[in-house]
């Protein structure tokens, strides 16, 4: 739902306003209450049919982005990543710097006298067509974004920011189309990409959840460059279920419940086979009084780059699985 719009909106860590406003507008008529907390998380509350259990769904709104760090005398802009972005992905690409278009040019191959082994941000500049410093209206601290247009091709989608707008999209669809058994908080968190203490670190204190499901767009790596044993997930094999990731061992009761619901409904699923990366599950489990959390992800190739690829059947199956979990008592029973 609204995956194209969500993918194309700019929203880096700390600059989630446009994404937040969009989701708020689309979700408000389907929930009982919507608010934004002090760290910029958007929370939409939907009352359940029964009381006594509070479930949270969490997808982060922010994408990896860049920030302008210096305006140079020649009118070019220096920049740094906000979140983990390999500098190789930005060479020769177009970026949107605030409302201004820029390009990351590169020294022509004809005059590269010495072999270049490594790309690093200190050697890259954004060119906005200015020839000297006083022509530049952009200020330091401005965010810069990939400009990729979202496209669907067959069962696949190509775009930027699937990590984690695909999670936002699934969560929004579940909020709109599900009838939760218990009180459910649809949370769209801020500042996930800049480390473990982002917006979601205050959720437990404020909401006191009993359990949470984190919805993510996660790494795939199912390409010829990697031997198949090094793959994290495989596109087309269904939602990826995490058992452990950086900073949190998934609560076994939640992990097993996700799998049993998937099996009951014959929804294909796969294990996330690599443990790299972390999610807001850490914040749910370790902040406030803490609550057990699980992670369900749509596999995406090439995340944290301008062209991620995902499978729309995986999206549909992730939606079905999450909706089923929200509409059943199974998570509560597992945690009793």
């Amino acid at each position: 739902m609204y995956l194209k719009e969500l993918s194309e909106l700019p929203g880096g860590s700390g600059d989630e306003g446009k994404v937040r406003d969009f989701i708020k507008e689309k979700i408000k008529d389907y929930v009982d209450k919507v608010w934004v907390d002090r760290l910029g998380n958007l929370v939409a509350f939907k009352k359940g049919k029964k009381e006594g259990f509070k479930l949270g769904l969490v997808a982060h709104m922010d994408e990896v982005s860049f920030m302008i760090t210096a305006i140079n005398d020649d009118g070019s802009l220096s920049f740094a990543p906000v979140g983990g972005i390999d500098p190789r992905v930005v060479v020769g690409k177009t970026l949107k710097v605030g409302d201004t278009l820029g390009v990351v040019g590169y020294k022509p191959i004809h005059i590269q006298r010495e072999k270049i082994e490594k790309i690093s941000y200190k050697d890259l500049r954004i060119d906005i067509g200015a020839r000297k410093k006083d022509e530049v209206k952009v200020k330091v601290g401005t965010y810069a974004y990939f400009t990729t247009t979202y496209e669907e091709m067959g069962d696949y989608a190509i775009g930027k920011a699937f990590d984690d707008r695909v999670g936002c999209s699934v969560e929004l669809k579940v909020a709109v189309e599900s009838t939760p058994v218990y009180d459910t908080y649809f949370i769209f968190s801020s500042q996930e990409e800049i480390g473990p203490m982002g917006g979601a670190s205050i959720l437990m204190e404020g909401l006191g959840l009993d359990a949470a499901l984190i919805l993510e767009g996660t790494t795939a790596g199912d390409i010829p460059e990697l031997e198949s044993y090094k793959w994290a997930t495989h596109l087309g094999n269904g939602p990826a279920i995490t058992f452990f990731h950086s900073g949190y061992v998934i609560d076994e009761r939640i992990f097993k419940t996700i799998i049993s619901v998937a099996k009951d409904l014959s929804i294909p699923y796969q294990m996330k086979m690599r443990t790299a990366g972390g999610t807001d599950a850490r914040n749910i489990a370790s902040r406030g009084k803490g609550a057990p959390a699980g992670v369900i992800s749509v596999p995406c190739r090439y995340i944290h780059s301008p062209v991620s690829v995902m499978n729309l059947k995986d999206y549909d199956n992730t939606f079905k699985l999450v909706k089923a979990l929200v509409e059943s008592e199974s998570l509560r029973k597992a945690l009793d």
Binding site: G84, I85, D86, R88, V89, I158, T219, A220, G221, I223, E225, L226, K230, A232, R274, A276, G277, R301, Y302, I303, H304, S305, V307, S308, V309
Partner: peptide, 9 residues
């Protein structure tokens, strides 16, 4: 597309 493996991997 010509992709690049995510930094996580």
């Amino acid at each position: 597309v010509i992709g690049i493996i995510a930094p996580h991997l």
